[in-house]
Write a protein that binds this DNA or RNA. Structure first.
Length: 671
DNA sequence: CTCAGGAGATACC
DNA sequence: GGTTAGGTATCTCCTGAG
């Protein structure tokens, strides 16, 4: 860490040098900037503010972390050092053996995207320093503004100080989405499975294009950039390399409106990576850069390999692996087939207040916004996280995982209020809400088969393996394709109607018929006690839970049936995973292996008693009855499956018809 | 011991 | 005149339950 010199009087003549911000990192277009001046202005504008004080706290925390790690290093004996060196050497060999130089990846990055789009719609902005954003935060600055040190993630008032003539343009996502779509149409022609990383960035596997046309990656990149310009009037930069991690680094080299090609050659890669500052690597940010530099003296990727032993000694397995891969210039070369959203959130900053009525009002507004966003995508989740930022910029989060999936603003607000209540009194400047753990998402799909939910059981189609001494579905399907389990989660979006018995509300003590609630967790004792009362009223064990399902279900089924969504009344389709049966028995219009209305069979109209097992449920337990029916459906599937057991070939394929593949907003990969 | 969940931190655009 | 975003993902560490 660079230390500012201290004068004999104890005064630090250049205190700004030790004020580290994210925007001191070199960015394209900022080469000629007087960094010292920028840092001084940033420091002076920030000094004394609550934000600044918080940054200092964070900085102190980081320094402490660094000290601790240095001490750890110092404690290592010679024997430890050689041991970890061996561990690292072995790991490096293993990682090296995974090197794949067969693919050609292209990373496209639009130049100052938002700013460029704004200039397109208002040509009078051309040549003038301009930033998209507000006085509190800037999203993007054009190259004229960057000359002054203005950049993304910088507050507008500081930017204005750096560049008094700076023009501010408010963000307009509709506009950016429109242009983003235009660029994506071009990308699609080069790689129909391209990965959109955000509105303005994408990864394309151009291996086939290069082979088919007998041209080099650089030529394809040139052509693609020209076409993007023709279609949109916007320039972009590109990087061509053997993997995505390197392609991303390469696209930044000749920005703006340029490209850089790294050949698919091990020597070329190693030479390229050796002198590369670690901060250029995606995933290594301000903090990691400082830690690696101040603890181990690592500045370049080459030095990562030299310090491999220490990295293995200090960091977790996965983190050390990541660092070593970076040192070797390795990165992902596969094309994930699906990538699903794992959470959805909404947050707002406002002027700090401790007025409780006001805070609840803000909370209600956010719950409403989040609910709207969730409805757009038909999402329901069971974990709700409240995010708070205090007036002193301290960030806290409080979460609760429910036994049912929620999506209405009333429900969100109900639980969010309880979480907030426990924090009062408090002065806040931000409130946020996040919902995660969507139906059967990856995190919800327990790897413990005894904890699997009914849906998971049906969807994964692997039920039999448990009793047959086989491997879990993850093991079978995902051994060499890590995204296959994502594929399974894909069904979750539409599957909330065939669900398990986790419907109880930990805070609803009026629910006398609640089922067992072993997995619910609470964020604070008050609520837990309240819920405990409720739990004591439970009639436990009166219904078989999904956990008890015995599994003789051996892969290979696609079942499609429709039901009505309880909230929206919209028909919901559920696709149960499958293989051979896909073409033979199912996809014939809306026909399903099991009749669509089968799920209601075990409860006759107005009858609260299950015709199959005799269990009774109260008249208003509509949802619960349907879920109970689903349970029997699973049993039927199981029986059906045992009769077709001989068909074992597993050819996983997405059972989602094209038009049902959900599309997501910016930042998500659409496959 | 393993797993799920909670909390905080980090990173990227 | 004061003013430092919003959305998503991932990792680590910790804790309680089974």
């Amino acid at each position: 860490m660079e230390k500012s010199e201290i004068t004999s009087s104890g005064e630090n003549p250049r205190p700004w040098q030790s004020y580290h911000t994210v925007y001191t990192n070199a960015k394209a277009g900022m080469e000629g900037v007087d960094k010292e001046k920028v840092q001084r202005i940033v420091y002076e504008m920030s000094k004394g503010s609550k934000y600044f004080e918080n940054e200092e706290r964070k900085e102190a925390y980081m320094r402490q972390k660094i000290e601790t790690m240095r001490a750890q290093c110092a404690k290592l004996k010679a024997a430890d050092v050689s041991h970890y060196q061996m561990v690292a050497d072995k790991r490096i060999l293993e990682l090296e053996s995974t090197r794949d130089l067969s693919r050609i990846w292209l990373h496209v990055d639009m130049d100052a995207f938002y700013a460029a789009v704004e200039t397109l719609s208002d040509p009078s902005l051309t040549g003038k320093p301009m930033a998209v954003g507000s006085m509190s935060m800037i999203s993007t600055a054009n190259y004229e503004a960057r000359k002054f040190g203005v950049r993304a993630a910088m507050p507008g008032f500081i930017a204005r100080k750096l560049c008094p003539d700076l023009i501010f343009v408010p963000t307009d996502f509709n506009k950016y989405t429109h242009y983003s779509d235009l660029t994506r149409k071009v990308f699609q022609k080069y790689d129909p499975h391209f990965m959109a990383a955000s509105l303005d960035e994408a990864y394309l596997d151009i291996t086939s294009v290069c082979k088919e046309r007998g041209v080099a990656g650089g030529e394809v990149a040139e052509e693609l950039r020209t076409r993007v310009y023709e279609e949109t009037g916007l320039t972009c930069s590109a990087g061509v390399a053997p993997n995505r991690l390197l392609a991303k680094v390469c696209s930044d080299i000749n920005k703006p409106n340029g490209q850089f090609v790294l050949p698919n050659d091990r020597m070329a890669v190693m030479t390229f990576i050796s002198s590369l500052p670690i901060r250029k690597i995606g995933g290594i940010g301000k903090v990691t850069e400082h830690i690696l530099r101040d603890v181990l003296g690592i500045n370049t990727c080459e030095e990562i390999l030299q310090k491999g032993g220490f990295l293995c000694a200090l960091f977790s397995h996965s983190t050390a692996d990541f660092f070593l891969s970076v040192g070797l210039g390795l990165g992902r070369t596969d094309t994930p087939q699906v990538k699903f959203r794992k959470s959805i959130s909404s947050e707002r900053t406002f002027s700090a207040t401790n007025d409780e009525a006001l805070l609840y009002q803000k909370l209600a507004d956010i719950a409403e916004m989040l609910c709207r966003d969730m409805q757009k995508e038909g999402l329901r989740g069971r974990t709700l996280t409240l995010k708070l930022k205090t007036a002193s910029f301290e960030v806290r989060s409080r979460a609760v995982t429910l036994q049912k999936y929620i999506c209405s603003s009333e429900e969100i607000l109900k639980y969010a209020s309880k979480l907030l209540k426990a924090e009062l009194p408090i002065s806040l400047r931000l409130i946020g809400l996040r919902v995660s753990h969507f139906n059967e998402d990856k995190a919800g799909a327990s790897s413990d088969p005894t904890q699997r939910t009914l849906t998971n059981f049906v969807l994964s189609g692997d039920a039999s393996r448990k009793t047959m001494g086989g491997r879990s579905s993850l093991g079978l399907y995902c051994s060499d394709e890590p995204f296959m389990d994502d594929l399974e989660t894909s069904f979750s979006t539409d599957s909330h109607d065939i669900n398990h018995y986790e419907t109880r509300d930990p805070w609803d003590s009026t629910n006398k018929q609640d089922l067992e609630d072993h997995h619910c967790t609470f964020s604070n004792n008050i609520e837990a006690e309240e819920a405990h009362e409720s739990l004591s009223n439970d009639i436990a064990g009166n219904v078989n839970t999904a956990d008890t399902v015995e599994c003789n279900f051996n892969s290979c089924h696609t079942v499609v049936f429709e039901s009505k969504d309880a909230e929206t009344s919209l028909p919901q389709k559920l696709y149960v995973s499958n293989t051979n049966l896909v073409n033979k028995e199912v996809i014939t219009g809306n026909e399903a292996v099991f009749s669509p209305d089968w799920q209601y069979h075990c409860f006759k109209e107005d009858d609260c008693k299950c015709s199959l097992c005799g269990i009774e449920m109260p008249p208003d337990f509509v949802e619960e009855r349907r879920e109970h029916s689903d349970f029997h459906l699973a049993e039927r599937l199981q029986e059906k499956e045992s009769s077709v057991n001989s068909r074992t070939s597993i050819q996983r394929q997405s059972p989602l018809p094209l038009n049902t593949i959900p599309t997501y907003g910016p930042g998500l990969i659409i496959r």
